[in-house]
Design a protein around this nucleic acid. Sequence first.
DNA 1: GGAATTGTCGAGTTTCGCGCTCAACATTAT
DNA 2: ATAATGTTGAGCGCGAAACTCGACAATTCC
Lengths: 148, 148
Amino acid sequence: MKLSTKSDYGVRALIELALSGDGAPVQRAEIASRQQIPESYLDHLLGQLRRDGFVRSVRGPGGGHLLTREPAEMCLLHVIESLEGSVAPIACLEEGGECTHAPGECVQCWVWEDIYEETRRRLGDISLADLADRVRDQRRGAAANYSI
Amino acid sequence: MKLSTKSDYGVRALIELALSGDGAPVQRAEIASRQQIPESYLDHLLGQLRRDGFVRSVRGPGGGHLLTREPAEMCLLHVIESLEGSVAPIACLEEGGECTHAPGECVQCWVWEDIYEETRRRLGDISLADLADRVRDQRRGAAANYSI
DNA sequence: GGAATTGTCGAGTTTCGCGCTCAACATTAT
DNA sequence: ATAATGTTGAGCGCGAAACTCGACAATTCC
C-alpha cells in the first residue's frame, strides 16, 4: 500500500515551479538538481503534468517549465491523481474499474469506501500554495540559522 | 497505492471462521473453496495470522483453523497490519522506518500524516464481527430471494 | 503400530510494474 | 546553421507479489 515515487517527485517539482514565481520558465536540470530528482525520469513526470494541464513547457534556449495557474488554484488531489492514476487502495473503488463482486457484496468496499472518500476530501483541501509557503518558510528559517 | 491480495484473502478467511462459530475447526480446503482463495496461498496467510495470534490451528484428521478470540474483539486494523505489514502510504510514516529527510522537511509527511492516522483510526473501529454480521445478513437475504 | 489426514514451512517460479536510462526527434533563440 | 532546450517511446534491471510444490510434523483412527 505504498505510493510510488512519482507523486513525491512530481509534487516537489511543482513546488519548485511555484517558488520560482517570477514568470520565467524553470529548466528541467534546475528542478532536478534543486529537488534531487533523476533528470531523465523527471521528463516523464513533467510530461504527465503537462498532459493534465498543470504545467506548460517552452522549448529552445531559455525554455523550461511553468505552472499554468496560481499555486493556490491547484489542489493536491488532482495533482496526485494525475501522477499516480488513483489513490484508491483497492481497484473496486476506482472510476470505471468495477467491482467484480455482485453489488453490495464486496467486503473490501465496505471497509475502504469511506476511508477513500475521506482521503480524497483531505487531499482536495491542500493546495500547492500551502506546500510552497511551508517550504519557503522553512528555507528562510534554515538561512536564518546559518547566518547566526 | 494498492493493497495486496493478502488483506482481502486474509480478512475473508477470518470472516469464514467467524461465521462457522460452532467451535469446530474449519479446514483450509473449506475456507479456500467457500471464499475462492487459492488453497496453497492461503497457507501462508493463515501462517501469518497464527503467528500474530488471530487463529489457532489443529493438525490431523478433523483438524483445521479457529479464531483465538471473539470476532467482536478483533479489529481490522490489527488484522490488516498483520497481513500487509503496514497501511502507511509512505515509508516515512512507518514505525521504525525513519524519514530520510531532516525532521519537519518531508513534504510527503506533511501531506499524508493526518490521512494515515485517520485511516488507522477508522480501521480500528471496525471489528471482524461487524463484517461477519454483514455477510451473514447478506447470505440470508440472498437465500430469501431464492426461496421466493 | 501403521496408514490416512490435516497443518507447517521454506524454497522456487512466474509475472508485472516501478524506477530509470537512452536515443531519436521537435522546437525555438541567437 | 547551430546550439539549447523540451518530447516521446522503447527498453532494461530489479524486486515484490502471487502463487506452487515438496518434504516434514502432528494427530487421529483402525
